[in-house]
Design a protein around this nucleic acid. Structure first.
Lengths: 190, 190
DNA sequence: GCCATCATGTAATCTGTTACATGATTAT
DNA sequence: ATAATCATGTAACAGATTACATGATGGC
């Protein structure tokens, strides 16, 4: 059994926030869940077509005044049902792939400075993510204090904050170990 | 440009730990880096063939006494160089996909209990992972205290511990929010 | 007797990215 | 001028999983 196609459900879920075009779906995903989910046009456009053929979304053609014509999609009753059926199913555990850890695992093959460069880059990415996450949470709290999905959005951001804080702490530990200031064993004793 | 094929380098890296068969490569990956990396036979066997054709690994056929014959692969000098070239390159950021957060993002579409079930399952997985990670670290520290790669192995485990501890904490917060005991906004104030 | 482990490999299939093609409008 | 945004779509291709095929040995 191949992995279930989650693009379908992502699009259906996005369309519960209102009718929109494929282009809009993409930018909605980037702005709202881009932190933990991504879709490309190469997936979105064909999937929208398939969803329409299955009666899970409706399409309405809108003449673009000046702008290109848009296909505006809205979710159907059957689409909502299909979405809810999937939402209550247990989330499949993600297949783990962490290239940084993979490279570090083979770190004995390269110079210590190479490993330290990896860590520094990783810490910078996590720190940058934290800034983004915190500013997004603030913006949401002031601009949409009454939205029904606000708690769900904030919980996603909150997990990102906690994980990235952990990453930043780990980077400090990793640097200490790679510089020889600590042994890795000590990390587990304390 | 397609994403670089990391299976190649994973196999080369594994073979720095000694000559072994495709079967061994798979079980080595599962036991050592299974926590953050996975490969299937469907990838390993064809990749080993390709690596041999490129002169990055050598193959030696060993008659199995009783057992099936084995193809034992060892990394060549050129293989080691190719590996090191890749190891020093910046790790490509993983494309994020987190099905649990995706489902939770659309959580307003289902009953609160459905969301709570997701969280409970997620916490159980993280708790189980923590038990595994801690016991692995202890086993490594006592059994291979002198191995040159021990610090690298332990650092990988340590990140897993820190991230999963964060996940467990987050699950408690998420449950409080979903039960209405706290508001999501409060999570960001404190 | 049966299951786990050892052992190799192919085929079918899917998911998903990237590049390409096209072209108007608006803001800088 | 020119870059960014709006807007839709296809084609090529790679990465990866799963299922299938085959078969022996050794422990319970």
């Amino acid at each position: 059994m191949p992995r279930t196609n989650r693009t379908r459900y992502t699009i259906l879920g996005v369309l519960t926030h209102g009718a929109m075009s494929g282009y809009d779906v993409k930018s909605f995903i980037e702005r709202s869940i881009g932190n933990f989910w991504r879709e490309s046009y190469g997936q979105i456009y064909p999937t929208l077509k398939a969803l329409e053929a299955e009666g899970l979304v409706d399409r309405e053609r809108r003449e673009g005044s000046g702008r290109p014509d848009r296909n505006v999609y809205s979710i159907t009753r059957r689409g909502s049902e299909t979405l809810r059926e999937w939402l209550v199913l247990p989330a499949e555990p993600e297949i783990p792939r962490h290239e940084l850890l993979l490279k570090l695992f083979f770190g004995a093959q390269v110079d210590p400075e190479d490993n330290l460069r990896h860590i520094a880059r990783y810490r910078a990415q996590a720190a940058e993510a934290l800034v983004m996450l915190r500013s997004t949470s603030e913006r949401l709290i002031v601009s949409r204090p009454d939205a029904a999905d606000l708690p769900f959005w904030l919980l996603g951001i909150r997990l990102g904050v906690m994980v990235n804080e952990g990453v930043v702490d780990w980077c400090a530990e990793a640097e200490a170990v790679l510089r020889g200031a600590t042994t890795a064993e000590d990390l587990f004793v304390t």
